[in-house]
Design a protein around this nucleic acid. Structure first.
Lengths: 255, 255
DNA sequence: CGATTTGTTGATCTTACTCAATAATCGTGG
DNA sequence: CCACGATTATTGAGTAAGATCAACAAATCG
């Protein structure tokens, strides 16, 4: 199937969703994280929907925005994986994070008004652009949206702090284990398989993100496989024993 | 001068400020970060002022809130230093951050509605409590406040991500250098001396925060002193050569 | 299909941790 | 105000976790 056909199908699918049950579930609406089922009324959700610009699937390697670009919009990932990274004066890359379906990108730039990092697609990705001006305006009118935005930002702070602690306190096995569990939980939250998924990022991206060397990541994953905790074949990953993975990461198992 | 006399003086000073120019500058108003000079009108600032509960200076060692407490308020630090830290199942402490005058505490709990960490005073501290319910309500009416809250949250995300990168990529010297420069910049922002200040936290707190051993922190500070970059006598610190400190930390000098 | 990127494994080296001993500082009560 | 114990800070010696270097294998892509 070529790109054009795929685009065509995507467009058709979007149209279908809009006509039928675009708001029944946040799974479909593209503004996933911004929509709160049972919190916003249908007309409110329609308003939010109208400010979001759907479409334009990104090919692997395409940029959503670049470091030092002006901040104009938030982006909601609908499908695929986006890598956020900055490049320092020496040209060294520093991976800030990975964004999966249902997650919002760009909130760190609201204050400074410019992006301090670039966002690139690691796999074919579908992203929804939400002009920030409009969000502010709409949040002024829709109380529930205002409150929800605070919660989104707060959640990002909490998860950044968790990563902080991981990097400050944990060894290689714990970091990698926690990273994989974190992906698993995030996929589960989106009703995607928590036990089997693709690692769209390279080992080098993972290492960079976790403050480790590529070789260490490779070795730890090998060790986990030998321990029967997971099965990794290239980019595809299967978690065989979630309990054991939590144990080696010194994490409590999620419910 | 004993504690009581000092309290007395503080109270007098507060009264004086309220009567005279409480809103001329955010330096004095206790809601420092929440007030935006030239952005909010005087009546708007009065409204914000009225929801904030001043007073109750904390003694060193007193808690502002504890891990797993319900989230009810944000806290603006007016004076002193607050340490935010969590304790894991093994009883190990993990320092999440230090909050200086003019900084806001508690934003990570907006989403979850409970505190994931405890906040304790490292020195006699003055803190302003701002009930979050009231902030939400007021932000619904005062557009500028709504927008400012987004910026505050966004700024926290940005600085958490910077720490993330520091922990993932930098060695002991760079971490400690960047930490000291960061304090310096934050004091400068509040018009406090950027070259001479007290390290209210212990070396162990610093080490914990930066993911290092106490001994390493001690050694690096000694090395910095031998290099003529700073002078540290117990808790008091003087930065003798800011340029050199930036250099060893591989930071650009702040303007 | 060949070239380039990405991933794995092994050997060696280095940074920062751990353990240990001592010194300085803090806080409390006499 | 000083003396005491307790906490905190410094310094040294040995160790280990993970980085680096190197070689090779596998996957990806034009």
């Amino acid at each position: 199937m070529d790109q054009q056909t795929r685009d065509q199908q995507t467009r058709e699918q979007q149209t279908r969703e809009q006509k039928t049950n675009a708001h029944v579930s946040c799974q479909q609406c593209g503004l996933n994280e911004l929509c709160i089922p049972h919190t916003l009324t249908a007309p409110e959700m329609d308003e939010i929907d109208q400010i979001a610009r759907r479409g334009k699937p990104l090919q692997k390697g395409e940029y959503l925005f670049r470091q030092s670009d002006d901040f104009e919009s938030l982006f909601a990932v609908r499908a695929g994986c986006i890598k956020l990274f900055s490049v320092d004066d020496n040209g060294d890359e520093k991976v800030v994070g990975f964004f999966l379906p249902g997650e919002i990108l760009g909130m760190d730039a609201i204050d400074s008004k410019f992006h301090s990092a670039s966002a690139v697609a690691l796999s074919t990705a579908s992203v929804c652009e939400i002009p920030y001006e409009s969000v502010e305006l709409l949040a002024g009118r829709i109380k529930n949206l205002q409150v929800h935005m605070y919660r989104l930002l707060s959640r990002e702070i909490r998860s950044d702090q968790e990563l902080q602690l991981l990097l400050a306190k944990n060894n290689a096995e714990e970091r990698i284990g926690a990273f994989l569990m974190n992906l698993s939980v995030r996929y589960e939250r989106r009703r995607l398989s928590p036990k089997e998924f693709r690692l769209d990022m390279t080992r080098s991206d993972i290492a960079n993100y976790l403050g480790l060397a590529v070789e260490t990541v490779s070795r730890v994953i090998t060790r986990f496989q030998k321990a029967g905790i997971l099965r990794a074949e290239g980019k595809s990953l299967e978690i065989l024993d979630r309990g054991a993975l939590c144990a080696v990461s010194h994490l409590k198992a999620p419910d």
